[in-house]
Amino acid sequence: MPPPLLELAAAVKRYGNGEGVGPLDLEVAAGEAVALIGPSGGGKSTLLRLLLGLLAPDAGEVRLGGAPLADDPAVRRRFGYVVQGGGLFPHLTAAGNAALVARHLGWDRGRIAGRLEELAGLTRFPRDGLARFPAELSGGQAQRVSLMRALFLDPEVLLLDEPLGALDPITRAELQDDLRRAFRELGKTVVLVTHDLAEAAYLARRLVVLRGGRVLQDGTLRELVEAPSDPFVSRFVRAHRALGLPGEGA
């Protein structure tokens, strides 16, 4: 059996104020979509940053394809990362943002233009928006650019940190549809952070509930609903069901 593509083995990360995560164990197989959910401060973003190598664990290990993760720009290019809040560079146009790394790597203009065309179609980003600066884009458009940037080099893994955090409900629903379609079309390994159970269940089959830096439960939505491993999990699930939760997704 091949090793999991992503792997945390007893990984621990502590911050100066005593908060942090771990020890955490998590395996993500190639092609799998996983949503990390839980309350704010539960360690979701930290876990994502450990997976990407932006943070080094204090103890334990992070592995990519069975090998310890190196702090190396080339390794990071195997990931696509959508930062919380989008993280678009205000001095570059939408196209400039999306193609920044490709330009650095020396792609020629034609190849970049082709890839931009392709990704604008995939993310349903308007072509005439490519020349605009982030300040001139709507929130939903900015998120689509952020996704284009993450996908530009066709990475193996897509990491998304609250990709739809600050959007209005309609735009958010639209983008959820587009993300789900993109994940299916591309068949990539996806790790997604959200605090919204409905969104998590819509975009990923496997849900990982994090609280206080530990994994409380790891399973499908049905498992979370029917066999909560912890009183908090049932409280977390009930809080969403009260809002008229749709059925189990994907």
Binding site: P73, F79, Y81, V83, G87, F89, L100, L153
Partner: peptide, 23 residues
Amino acid sequence: ELADSARAIGLPPGARLRLVELP
């Protein structure tokens, strides 16, 4: 989040400085 993005998308330090931070 911008400094983070520049690292996360896989730009080496020199390119981060030139393409993102100095601008």
